[in-house]
Simulated assay, not measured.
Amino acid sequence: MQPTLLILAAGMASRYGSLKQIQQFGPSGETIIDYSIYDAIRAGFGKIVFIIRENFAEEFKEIFEPKLKGKVETAYVFQNMDAFTDGFEIPADRTKPWGTAHAVLCAKGAINEPFAVINADDFYGRDAFEKMAAFLKNECADDKYSVVGYELGKTVSDYGFVSRGVCQVSDNGNLAGITERTKITVEDGKIAYEEGDKKVELGPKTPVSMNFWGFAPSVFPISEKLFSQFLEQNISNPKSEFFIPIVVDQFIAAGLGSVKVIPTSSQWFGVTYKEDAPGVQESLSALVSKGEYPDNLWK
């Protein structure tokens, strides 16, 4: 059975104001999502599911359907504020979506096979997709999930601090936990994060999660139960979010299974700061000129 790729794109509209201006980085106007889908198709993914906001559905389909028609099956799922909130009154001041784990949960009716989850506007690289596809086809099970572990040095920005989920990896290569480190910066070639008033150095090979996960459909009932608990505790906090690592930590802590850390040599890139954009364009041009990608992905 071919695995599915779930792309978290519900937050895109708020960043771009309108999807008409989705940033084009590739030589033929490709967006970062285009490269992820291209890598996924050639790695053997059989279906692409987009999580989007309902009010941007038409614009979104206009951009992607003409490119992907006949190349891969597509489906669209909406992250609505009231999804899976049965019995809870949503406060009037809540405008923020419920977070990445809620977005995944919204795809419950659309996915019945092993699947990967990625962010819409991050470039993950061919190696990462190939390794994830192999995991989903050969190893994924109700009690065995995965996360791609990027080398921290391949994910930082020269233009300011970034936040990264630093992975603790056990001796058998499984995830022991994830610690969100905010304010990671590069100074004089050294990477460090701020904690209080001190700086703690991290090695460039430290594995970090960039939100590229591999799940079995068993994650849906687990997430649903945890989301209910999350709402009980956080419904009145307008900024609280139900993130994927919350589900993963509980999955491990409750002894429900293990999460394999898949190391990759791929260079990650994304646009954390607008100054990052020219670098992303240069990196893609370099990959195209090396023959990693055609100069027009969908020709």
Results as ranks from 00 to 15, higher is better:
110 A>T: 02
25 F>V: 15
106 C>A: 09
46 G>C: 07
80 N>L: 09
73 E>C: 04
118 I>R: 02
99 G>N: 05
123 F>N: 08
45 F>G: 04
76 Y>L: 06
38 Y>F: 07
34 D>K: 03
86 D>K: 14
18 S>L: 14
91 P>G: 00
138 N>D: 13
143 D>E: 06
84 F>A: 08
69 K>I: 07
54 E>H: 09
65 E>W: 03
119 N>T: 10
98 W>Q: 08
84 F>D: 08
50 F>K: 12
57 A>C: 12
39 D>P: 10
17 G>D: 12
117 V>L: 08
18 S>A: 15
103 A>I: 03
33 I>T: 11
70 G>I: 10
112 N>M: 04
55 N>M: 14
42 R>K: 13
54 E>N: 10
70 G>H: 10
93 D>H: 13
108 K>W: 01
128 A>L: 12
121 D>M: 08
22 I>Q: 03
47 K>R: 12
46 G>L: 06
80 N>F: 10
63 I>N: 02
90 I>A: 02
136 L>G: 06
49 V>T: 05
33 I>F: 06
64 F>M: 06
14 S>W: 12
131 K>G: 01
55 N>K: 10
104 V>D: 00
21 Q>H: 14
62 E>R: 10
90 I>R: 08
106 C>K: 00
78 F>C: 11
39 D>L: 05
32 I>P: 01
143 D>A: 03
82 D>A: 14
135 F>Y: 08
141 A>G: 15
32 I>R: 04
145 Y>E: 00
42 R>F: 02
135 F>A: 03
60 F>M: 06
15 R>Q: 15
140 C>R: 10
35 Y>F: 04
55 N>Q: 13
78 F>E: 11
